[in-house]
């Protein structure tokens, strides 16, 4: 091979803006009203960067991921904002045009990727389907086999595994094959939604390390989604904390880990077993995310927040830069203790 296995098709240099999401609003229409699953979310993904989205289950992480591909459920509607990929807004384009961007430019490793395979087709044929559709030239059968074999080698699978059916794979193998499929068409962005949640811890760790290695080697741009803040810490450069459809904190992963400024991020971190030290439960995170049919007024976190004041119950805090690109949406972020979280003190 003279050309690299996974080619850069963006034409960008490392660190340049690749994906720019601005004020994205996506809501699900239900009989009881609108579920505001993605509310005014903005972020930028740079070339070669790993960006994390973290938050409890039901906070709208999957909804964001699906919106980027415009694959939200039938009752979901993008009601505002823009998704610019290489400067081009994907929100207003036709469904047909959108199809040419799916997988080709943005591919996805789904939550529960174990079931991402159609049981009646060989794994290789399902990857071939994407290549047949998106590859700029028409590949012969032999060329397709060769490419899939190389992709499989990259994720640690034998080349002849492409002739097998999904049920003949273990969970970990299926997940590796999904990653190979996500890489197959040289996407500019890969979204990995809880890519290892369904796997046992050891396999989970192997696959995370492998993904990280691939991302570094190939200078890939990845959006990582997990409810597990430890996973995000391990693999991302920058991260966003999501709560109830809103982004409440954004910044360098290292910064947020050493000094989370939003009470929710702080509680999330301190109630997670530390990667570097023993678990120290300082303030437990009680309750559950709100029902997004009727979110709390003011700050959406206020009913669960130990620092909440009257202002928080009425007025919604904006996501504001507190220095060095670290953004927080909280009126009282200065009350949040620094350096005594489980993850922070080491």
């Amino acid at each position: 091979m003279t050309t690299p296995l996974v080619e850069d098709t963006s034409g960008l240099k490392s660190g340049q803006t690749l994906l720019e999401v601005d004020n994205l609003i996506m809501r699900y229409k239900t009989k009881q009203g609108y579920v505001s699953a993605v509310e005014d979310v903005s972020f930028v993904l740079h070339k070669g960067e790993a960006l994390g989205l973290v938050g409890e289950s039901g906070c709208g992480k999957t909804s964001i991921a699906l919106s980027l591909l415009r694959l939200q459920a039938d009752n979901g509607e993008i009601m505002g904002g823009s998704i610019k990929l290489g400067g081009k807004d994907l929100v207003p384009i036709s469904e047909e045009e959108m199809r040419t961007h799916r997988w080709n430019d943005i591919s996805m490793v789904f939550q529960g990727a174990m079931n991402s395979w159609n049981p009646v087709y060989r794994v290789g044929d399902q990857i071939k389907e994407a290549l047949d559709l998106h590859w700029p030239t028409r590949l012969s059968r032999a060329e397709v086999r060769e490419r899939i074999g190389e992709l499989f080698a990259l994720v640690g699978l034998p080349a002849d595994a492409q002739d097998r059916y999904p049920h003949e794979f273990s969970g970990g193998m299926r997940q590796r094959a999904v990653i190979a499929m996500a890489l197959s068409c040289n996407p500019q962005v890969i979204i990995a939604d809880e890519p290892t949640t369904a796997l046992d811890v050891i396999v989970q760790d192997q696959i995370l390390k492998e993904l990280k290695r691939i991302q570094d080697d190939l200078d890939m741009s990845i959006i990582y989604i997990s409810h597990d803040i430890a996973v995000i810490a391990e693999v991302t450069d920058r991260m966003a904390v999501m709560y109830a459809g809103k982004m409440v904190e954004f910044g360098d992963t290292a910064d947020i880990f050493s000094a989370p400024r939003h009470p929710y991020a702080w509680l999330l971190l301190s109630s997670t077993p530390s990667i570097v030290g023993p678990r120290r439960q300082l303030a437990p995170l009680e309750g559950e995310p709100p029902n997004l049919l009727d979110p709390p007024t003011g700050c959406r976190f206020n009913p669960r927040c130990p620092f909440a004041t009257d202002q928080c119950r009425v007025e919604e805090p904006p996501l504001a830069d507190i220095g060095g690109g670290h953004m927080v949406a909280c009126w009282n972020y200065e009350d949040v203790p620094v350096g005594i979280t489980a993850g922070g003190v080491a």
């Binding site: 199809r99 990727a113 991402s116 159609n118 389907e129």
Partner: peptide, 14 residues
Amino acid sequence: KEDYILTARAKGLA
């Protein structure tokens, strides 16, 4: 309702 249908859509199939 199966997951692989979502995968197929994400692949950009018609």
